[in-house]
Nucleic acid binder design. Structure first.
Lengths: 294, 294
DNA sequence: AAACATGATGCCTTCCGGGTATCACTTGAT
DNA sequence: ATCAAGTGATACCCGGAAGGCATCATGTTT
């Protein structure tokens, strides 16, 4: 195998087409340079230069090898900086999971912020429900999740990104739309209710159950995705509780009604990440966005 | 500047995570290998390995540098062959990238065709995903790619080689195999779905999302390689959409089911190449196979 | 024909890199 | 607690590779 010095020597000679000047450029004398080239030619197995005792010329093999040599040297020179940049988190890949619902609200601005703070970091996005995000964070398949409680505070660190209220999604023209006031629990007593899955969307499930004494007889579907729920509402299969940001979905045939009483903004979206941060880009992001904890 | 030996040493240690075994693999003793790594770290300007006096681990910089080192060595090993072949009067080398999936279908016949048309040209094959092929075509490390859209039509010219249908890969003995008819969207509603990565395998991702209203709650993995997907199916982690040619993989424990409805043959494989053709062998190939455009 | 230019070769010295022996430290067993 | 085993680092030695100087071989110029 040849050495980088041999490559550099060859490039110099190929550019100068003169051993003496090339040697001068390399801060060495001409004889060892000659021998360098000879060795290089031997290890490549082809003549690279034609020495005519008066002029030096590249052979075809030399021309081909010159490109390879330049590529090699360029790569070699960049490699340490690349590695250091990745290690410092200024470059690399961040794998971010997000729930469908967060896609309508916080995801866009957050990505803006990230690419402003870490312009050389590539973002790999995956839409996953909270449970899958947790799983992926544990196995290291994901660096950062945008998800909802609950999660294990021992293993994960987190930051509250966003809170919002729940609204009621009803089919267009539904009697409740003509109520002229906020919707109360009693108004929903006899409505077919499209419910969240207690397993896959436990957060919403608990939230709704806590908010409203659900008549289980009314539950017509259990689904795990906000988008599915709203689609089912549009198909007039029932009404559903969804976070306000779902209104941005722009699905036809659905109207969103305010809930009466002061229920606050119980829908939380958190950025969560494993406490043992493996990806330097994540560490950098947490510092840049001031997410790091004491 | 580091040396190739240092790179090879580092790669060996990074793979073995053990200086002694790595030294054995390199046919040398452990002490000089230790010093090699120390020098490499010094010239890179970052710690690459964490020696814990009991276990060796890659640092973040080490992980990043490992990739660079592998690329460098691969490039260095190929370079002489490239130059030699040109010098030996044979008219050159065609470096062709292909995706794993295309390896099962079009690659064999295409290679036949190429070696019939250009018997004096050597073929250098590399398996790369589409994104890597694009990158390699841009840097000139590749002459021709067998890849999938999208790519920049300004920079690349292309030719559609092959179209095929999608099928559903399911674990052997899965209930769907006893269906007795083509699979419909509804049949898959509750199946865990192994999805493509929207970034690394954007083409398939878009395709599947377009074909089928994916219930994102069901997505269990996002991967970028067809082979990985099929392996996961074999491991009964879920079902997956794959191009028909994946059936040729011959992986045990997987069955492939036809999709109902006329979905056409949406999976395209293109030959793509840079519009500014540098390699004369590529120019000849394009003319011979009548790929050249007006 | 002589002087010059240029790459190759011979020879010497230095230094780099590998080998052997050993150290320093940790871990696990008795 | 003590001791053996395992593992990477260090010390020292030696051979060979690489660079420098002097010179050769050959072709060009005057």
């Amino acid at each position: 195998m040849f050495t980088f010095d041999q490559l550099a020597g060859f490039i110099a000679v190929a550019e100068e087409l003169h051993f003496g000047r090339a040697a001068e450029r390399l801060n060495m004398t001409q004889p060892p340079l000659s021998r360098q080239i000879q060795k290089l030619e031997k290890s490549v197995g082809a003549e690279l230069l034609e020495r005519d005792n008066r002029r030096v010329q590249l052979t075809h093999a030399g021309q081909a090898f010159l490109e390879e040599a330049r590529r090699l040297l360029a790569l070699a020179e960049r490699a340490p900086a690349t590695a250091r940049r990745i290690a410092s988190g200024r470059s690399g890949v961040l794998r971010i999971g997000f729930t469908a619902a967060s896609g309508f609200s916080i995801l866009g601005p957050l990505l803006e912020e990230i690419s402003a703070a870490l312009p050389d970091v590539d973002i790999d996005l995956q839409e996953l429900v909270t449970g899958e995000q947790i799983q992926a964070l544990l196995t290291g398949e994901l660096d950062l999740g945008l998800a909802r409680p609950p999660f294990d505070g021992e293993i994960f660190d987190s930051r509250l990104l966003y809170r919002e209220a729940m609204v009621v999604a009803v089919p267009a023209g539904h009697p409740l739309t003509r109520l002229g006031r906020d919707v109360e629990n009693e108004d929903l007593r006899d409505e077919p209710l499209i419910m969240h899955s207690p397993l896959q969307a436990r957060y919403f499930y608990d939230l709704v159950v806590r908010t409203l004494p659900v008549q289980h007889g009314n539950v017509v579907h259990t689904v795990s995705q906000i988008l599915t729920m709203v689609s089912l509402v549009a198909a007039r299969r029932g009404v559903a509780f969804v976070p306000r940001s779902a209104t941005a979905l722009g699905i036809d045939g659905v109207e969103y009604l305010q809930l009466g009483g002061d229920r606050g903004e119980p829908v939380e979206l958190h950025a969560i990440w494993s406490r043992k941060v493996e990806n330097p880009a994540l560490g950098r992001l947490l510092r840049e966005l001031d997410f790091a904890r004491a």
